[in-house]
């Protein structure tokens, strides 16, 4: 009996997590179904693509260029010890396309757009605007969630490609211009080592991350309770849960793809 209680006690958080995961999936499925039913809400989709994609570009660019530069700098110090400076370019390119491009982009978009999604939808929930949508025979999942999820899945890979490129440019600038690595060698090693698949797999990751961050953020907003405090909590949780989920899924995606 005591043992039973222990398992019950220890298992409760896991059951809670599993339950929540199930509800997130249900919201995602519902959004997926609504994406194929008219009206198609193209206006909302484009509006969200602007909010998630275009408006995130500056932070993504800054993050990418600085991480590319730091990567070049750090790997240069390491490789110099055994005369492998020529590998700096390939290291930067592989890290950017496989990991840093998609992951850092997703993290920045989570912080910017994910929190905004949760806060905006959460505010609509506590101010009865979601009820108003239902009352006016408009499905809020189709009107609010679907465009955001679609925008996340479409814009994340685009941002990631830009981030990959800018990161490599940053690495090239540091390696070739500041540290004096021969730029021909720098580029030749990239051509030699970087496969198109590295980029593609990175983009598949980006699509998955875009899906995760938008669904989680919309979910947190959609089920907000408790007024202004609840909206703040929803935004925080959206960022925390999205970030953790992105890291965990990154491990599994990497294990499967590379």
């Amino acid at each position: 009996m005591a043992m039973m209680n222990f398992f019950e006690y220890a298992g409760r958080p896991f059951v809670g997590i599993l339950e929540e995961f199930g509800r997130v999936m249900l919201l995602f499925l519902s959004a997926a179904v609504w994406a194929f039913r008219p009206p198609f809400r193209l206006r909302q989709v484009f509006k969200q693509m602007e909010a998630v994609g275009v408006n995130s570009l500056p932070v993504v660019l800054i993050t990418a260029v600085s991480s590319g530069m730091v990567l070049a700098l750090q790997s240069y110090y390491g490789f110099r010890m055994f005369g492998g400076e020529s590998l700096v370019g390939a290291t930067v390119a592989l890290s950017m396309t496989r990991e840093i491009g998609p992951v850092f982009t997703a993290l920045m978009v989570t912080g910017r757009a994910g929190s905004a999604m949760a806060a905006e939808i959460g505010t609509m929930r506590v101010k009865e605007q979601i009820d108003a949508l239902y009352a006016m025979s408009v499905n809020p999942v189709q009107f609010l969630v679907m465009p955001r999820v679609l925008a996340g899945m479409v814009t994340l890979p685009v941002l990631t490609v830009v981030s990959d490129f800018i990161g490599i440019v940053g690495g090239y600038f540091v390696g070739g211009q500041l540290l004096g690595i021969n730029s021909g060698v720098f580029m030749a090693r990239i051509y030699e080592m970087l496969d198109l698949n590295d980029i593609f797999n990175g983009l598949i990751k980006a699509v998955c991350f875009g899906l995760i961050l938008s669904v989680v953020s919309c979910y947190k907003g959609f089920y907000t309770t408790g007024g202004a405090e609840g909206v703040g909590r929803a935004a925080t949780q959206a960022v925390v849960i999205s970030t953790v989920s992105i890291f965990i899924s990154d491990f599994f995606l990497t294990a499967v793809m590379f």
Binding site: K127, E128, Y134, S137
Partner: peptide, 23 residues
């Protein structure tokens, strides 16, 4: 839901805080 939406089209509702869309 589809049938319910048809019924709801006969309704207009004024919410407590008006519930106008801020955007």
């Amino acid at each position: 839901e589809r049938e319910l939406n048809e019924v709801r089209k006969q309704f207009g509702m004024l919410f407590q805080d008006a519930a106008l869309f801020d955007s």
